[in-house]
Simulated assay, not measured.
Amino acid sequence: MPPPPTDRTRVRRGVWMFPGIVAGALVDAVVAAEEYGLDEVWIADEGVARDPVPVLAAAAGRTSTIRLATGITSPVLRHPGAIAASAATLDELSGGRAVVGLGVGGELTLGPFGLGSDRPVALLRDAVDVIRAVHRGTAVPGYAPPSHATPPREVPMWIGARGPQLVRLAARVADGLFLSGCSPGQHESIIDNASSVGSVATAIYQTAVDRPTSPGELDWDDAHRMLVDAADRFAPASIGLNLVQLSTPGTDPVPLVERAAGLLGDV
């Protein structure tokens, strides 16, 4: 069963951003998110779009409290060792605010290269093992720490997933489960599935647009109501809004961040 309701004042609030606008504007959006009182920001890794790690690294120098997460990056496209090193470097630059968001990746990320995976659970399990080993300075099959490796540091790792096997994997090996664009019914089913393996923190993010065109999108008011309900029913570690409008070049992200922060402040 889902966890009991908890004090919503302790739930982190944030935004997820599509990296479809110029990098400097994305950095400004992260800075604005902190100024508007948000606790975390996730930037997607969509392959050949703007790279989230340099953007987050640039934002690290202009912020002091907000958590900086890749949301998500794929070991199909990036070697787990490179993911680990990038995350450790970002964590060092930001004073311990980095989060690794890990997942298989979708068509926008992998399609241009003709990539995919027919063993997603094994892929992510092995990637988690390598990333943890790099961050802890330990050896695992396929990795032996060299003398020039980054010093050990614990960087939280969250898995973005919906399918039953990947959700259970997240509950077993990750620090959290990132759920994005799901319906309330999906939330209950996914969280029950994760709970069958063990306790895992969840981040529930909903896509908010002015004119929804797909099942995963809601208008802003409906997205707000869904997050209020999700915060009460599922006691997530964090909640947020997906700013998919940033897939359109030239979009000003700061008003969207301000709008999201205003709604989330009432959740």
Results as ranks from 00 to 15, higher is better:
Leu38Cys: 03
Trp16Phe: 15
Pro19Val: 13
Ala33Asp: 01
Gly20Val: 09
Asp28Gln: 09
Asp28Trp: 06
Ala29Arg: 11
Gly47Cys: 04
Ala23Pro: 13
Asp28Glu: 08
Leu26Trp: 13
Ala23Ile: 10
Leu26Arg: 13
Tyr36His: 12
Phe18Glu: 14
Phe18Lys: 01
Asp39Leu: 00
Gly24Val: 11
Val27Glu: 05
Tyr36Glu: 14
Trp16Lys: 04
Ala25Val: 11
Ile21Trp: 12
Val41Thr: 00
Pro19Leu: 13
Tyr36Cys: 04
Ala33Tyr: 08
Gly47Gln: 04
Ala32Glu: 14
Glu40Ala: 13
Glu35Pro: 09
Pro19Ile: 13
Ala23Leu: 07
Ala32Pro: 03
Met17Glu: 12
Ile21Glu: 05
Val30Lys: 13
Val41Trp: 02
Gly47Leu: 00
Ala29Val: 07
Val22Lys: 15
Met17Trp: 14
Leu26Asp: 11
Val22Cys: 07
Tyr36Ile: 00
Ile43Cys: 02
Ala23Glu: 15
Ile21Asn: 08
Ile21Gln: 07
Val30Ala: 08
Trp16His: 09
Glu35Leu: 03
Gly24Ile: 08
Asp28Pro: 01
Glu34Thr: 02
Phe18His: 15
Ala25Asn: 10
Asp28Arg: 14
Asp45Tyr: 08
Glu34Asn: 09
Met17Gln: 06
Ala25Cys: 09
Ala29Lys: 03
Gly47Ile: 05
Ala23Gln: 15
Val31Glu: 03
Val27Asp: 11
Ala23His: 12
Trp42Gln: 05
Trp42Lys: 03
Val41Gln: 04
Trp42Cys: 01
Gly20Leu: 10
Val41Arg: 01
Val27Ser: 11
